[in-house]
């Protein structure tokens, strides 16, 4: 009974009501969102364990210590695997947006002061944070292994570029999340991104100028991979930048198109 009388204000008191600050953004919400991601076993395996395992599989191959730009082959592979891991986390985060909409969670949030743009911004922050964690995990695993070698500045530059590049895949995640309803988006995104990584010159180097290479240069991982490694290789071909920008536009456009179709029935 005491719980019933403890309410201080009368519900009819309209004047004393404040509007939430920051469009409704709070650390509590961000904290719970991060905890959700870290609790999801599938996300952890695909994003944190798998990339590190891939590095150990490919990073120890013959010629790992050959020189590439400012570092060695192992460093080149390290950046590639970190990109793959970060892309996976971002895609997983993006797919969650679509899943949450299909569950009607967005409708629940619409009944709060939370601004929809702030919601997307929070999701982007979660994706970037998870991307950072994924990149850090791969880097730590590789430092322990001891083979990669590049200047510290390059190391950091590559990591930051990688995290930024993953926003392309956050958009892809939203897009796929709508195409594959329910919670199965990761089943498509997992193998899908692995395939794109093979095609996009991320896992295995493809000889420049071959037919395979020409096909590869058109796939979505190719551009961002070149950008992520540019600080190491000191090369950034124009077509890689075009590739990254075009795929970003396509994924964002696709995601935005689905979302706008969806808002009609929030």
């Amino acid at each position: 009974m005491s719980t019933l009388t403890s309410t201080v204000t009368s519900p009819t008191d309209v004047t004393g009501r404040a509007v939430a600050r920051w469009g409704g953004f709070t650390p509590t919400m961000l904290g719970i969102e991060l905890r959700r991601m870290l609790r999801n076993r599938r996300t952890i395996i695909f994003t944190l364990v798998f990339p590190a395992a891939m590095f150990f599989a490919f990073g120890g191959q013959d010629g790992w210590d050959e020189k590439v730009g400012q570092g060695n082959v192992a460093a080149y592979i390290l950046v590639s695997m970190a990109l793959y891991g970060a892309a996976m986390t971002a895609a997983a985060g993006g797919a969650m947006v679509a899943v949450e909409r299909s569950l009607g969670w967005s409708r629940t949030l619409r009944l709060t002061p939370l601004n929809p743009a702030v919601y997307i911004l929070t999701k982007a922050l979660v994706a970037l944070t998870m991307g950072t964690i994924a990149v850090t995990v791969v880097n730590i695993a590789d430092i322990i292994q001891g083979k990669p070698h590049m200047p510290v500045g390059t190391w950091i530059a590559c990591a930051v570029l990688t995290v930024v590049c993953t926003l392309v895949f956050a958009a892809l995640g939203v897009f796929v999340g709508y195409l594959v309803p329910g919670e199965n988006a990761m089943q498509v995104l997992g193998p899908g991104l692995a395939l794109m990584s093979f095609l996009g010159n991320v896992f295995i180097p493809i000889t420049e100028g071959t037919t395979m290479w020409h096909i590869a240069s058109l796939t979505p991982m190719f551009g961002v991979a070149e950008i992520a490694r540019s600080s190491l290789t000191h090369e950034l071909p124009w077509y890689a930048v075009v590739n990254a920008v075009v795929w970003l536009a396509l994924f964002v456009g696709g995601a935005a198109w689905w979302m706008s179709r969806d808002t009609a029935r929030v």
């Binding site: 009501r17 404040a18 509007v19 939430a20 600050r21 409704g24 709070t26 509590t28 919400m29 719970i32 905890r35 959700r36 609790r39 999801n40 949450e100 569950l103 009607g104 969670w105 409708r107 629940t108 949030l109 709060t112 002061p113 939370l114």
Partner: peptide
């Protein structure tokens, strides 16, 4: 129907939504 996230606990759900209001 709907409008809930299955992977959150009951308390987390309430804390999440509660954090969005000014009071």
């Amino acid at each position: 129907t709907g409008g809930l996230l299955k992977d959150l606990t009951v308390r987390e759900t309430v804390a999440y939504v509660g954090s969005l209001f000014a009071t």
